[in-house]
Design a protein around this nucleic acid. Structure first.
Length: 409
RNA sequence: GGCGGCUUGGCCAAGGGGUAAGGCAACGGCCUGCAAAGCCGAUAUCCCCGGUUCGAAUCCGGGAGCCGCCUCCA
């Protein structure tokens, strides 16, 4: 929706048009989703561009006796006219009426009836309608727009857990009351991101914005963090979790780097057992945590194979590892993690470390060269001294067959 | 008060009747001049009580703790 009380309030305060305000936030949203590597939706309909369809929807509900207009310009949905009301959220309208904490609005037939169209107060934007100047209620926007683009029913509807009641319940009521067919086959309700075991909220002042997290961690780390727990469960954001996930991703990239160094590249030879395990997990209600476990198991197994591989790996080993590469590449494309080349990944990390720690790479390289010479001369005291010195700069050395590389811890 | 969910090793987290995946951290070992990386190894009876069952973390009942939704708005 791009018209609601908060937007209107802000518009009245700042003098900016509602559309100016919503465009600003829509842009911000797009920027952050793009940064997180979230694909853009095919359609992103706005409520204000579908008012005619919404009005038509409401008119038809009234015709069918599922809704009623009140003389003050309000139109309400009559929940008593929809027998399945409460099915999704497991609520019983009778109980809710009994437990209602609010003063009953006597214009409603049932206190749980909700607004389809509301009259405009002075200073509010409005559209003309058969019930006077006003604007749509929130729930009807979704029923009307989904109908326009997806038809009378569709397969999957997503949303946060908090929207189950009343929003999704109301969408079902509106659409099924009008069309008499099943509205949605599968509901995908995601849990929230908590922060340090508390709900993020303005009153607690514990908001963390995506853009701030992006300054500290790669988008892939954020994605891996979100995938590490089942989507339905709440997930707790903390520095420690992010750090752990970050380390785990390095482990994956480290393995991919080893494969690359062995000249193992993805090809057209098809998928292996990892792919099977991955798809099994994902097909089980998007069990991303289990899918990732399969990835890590393969990393461990692959590392072992590489450890034990002879100088000249045989064809069978190469073919097995190539299959792993194929699986990893396909999984990367689906999860949106380890999409970069390992060298680019580690180079970016190094750049960030250089910037954060204000380190001069030339000095590091010079020290490493000196250490290499010292090691050749078997002057291990000097070599270790240099390594300790670099460690002070948060730099870790790795001596490999092809020389010494460095990274930030 | 109503409805729903959660409680698994130091931390994070799968599993959901047949004897506990995975990640991070720590520890021991291999490798290494020593390290790092990698590998190997050991580490949990699943909040408590009771029940069903040949068998329960998984089912049922009770209890404790935590979380979300339940006016308007979205």
């Amino acid at each position: 929706t791009d018209v609601d009380d908060k937007i209107i309030k802000k518009s009245n305060e700042t003098g900016e048009a509602c559309s100016t305000i919503t465009e600003k936030y829509i842009d911000e949203f797009h920027n952050e989703m793009d940064a997180l590597n979230v694909l853009r939706p095919t359609m992103e309909p706005k409520a204000t561009e579908h008012i005619d369809h919404i009005i038509g929807f409401v008119e038809k509900l009234i015709e069918k006796g599922k809704a009623y207009a009140v003389d003050d310009g309000n139109v309400y949905f009559s929940i008593d006219a929809f027998e399945h009301y409460g099915r999704l959220s497991g609520r019983n309208p009778e109980d809710m009426r009994a437990g209602a904490r609010i003063a009953v609005e006597e214009k409603k037939k049932n206190p749980l009836d909700f607004t389809l169209w509301k009259p405009a107060k002075s200073g509010e934007p409005y559209w003309e309608s058969p019930w006077g100047n006003g604007r749509p209620g929130w729930h009807i926007e979704c029923s009307a727009m989904s109908h326009e683009y997806l038809g009378e029913g569709f397969d999957i509807h997503g949303g946060g857990k908090d929207l189950i009641f009343p929003h999704h319940e109301n969408e079902i009521a509106q659409s099924e009351a009008l069309f008499g067919t099943r509205f949605v086959k599968y509901w995908i309700h995601n849990g929230f991101v908590d922060i340090n075991h508390e709900k993020m909220s303005k009153s607690l002042g514990n908001f963390t914005m995506i853009k701030d997290v992006l300054e500290r961690y790669s988008p892939e780390v954020i994605r891996l963090f979100l995938l590490s727990k089942h989507y339905r469960s709440p997930i707790d954001y903390s520095e420690q979790s992010m750090h752990e996930v970050n380390m785990g991703l390095d482990r994956i990239y480290g393995f991919l780097e080893r494969l690359e160094n062995e000249g193992i590249q993805p090809d057209a030879s098809g998928n292996g057992p990892l792919w099977q395990a991955f798809t099994d997990a994902m097909n089980d209600d998007f069990n991303s945590a289990r899918a990732l476990a399969a990835v890590f198991e393969t990393v461990k197994k692959g590392n072992k194979m590489l450890d034990q591989a002879p100088e000249q790996p045989d064809k069978a080993l190469i073919s097995e590892l190539t299959q792993v590469q194929n699986d990893m590449a396909d999984i990367a494309g689906i999860l949106g993690i380890f999409l970069e080349t390992p060298s680019a990944w580690f180079a970016a990390k190094k750049d960030k470390g250089v910037a954060d720690m204000a380190v001069d790479p030339a000095i590091v390289e010079a020290l490493i060269a000196e250490r290499t010479q010292a090691r050749k001369d078997r002057d291990f005291a000097r070599a270790d001294e240099i390594r300790d010195q670099l460690q002070q700069m948060n730099i870790v050395l790795e001596d490999g067959p092809s020389g010494t590389s460095w990274r930030f811890a």
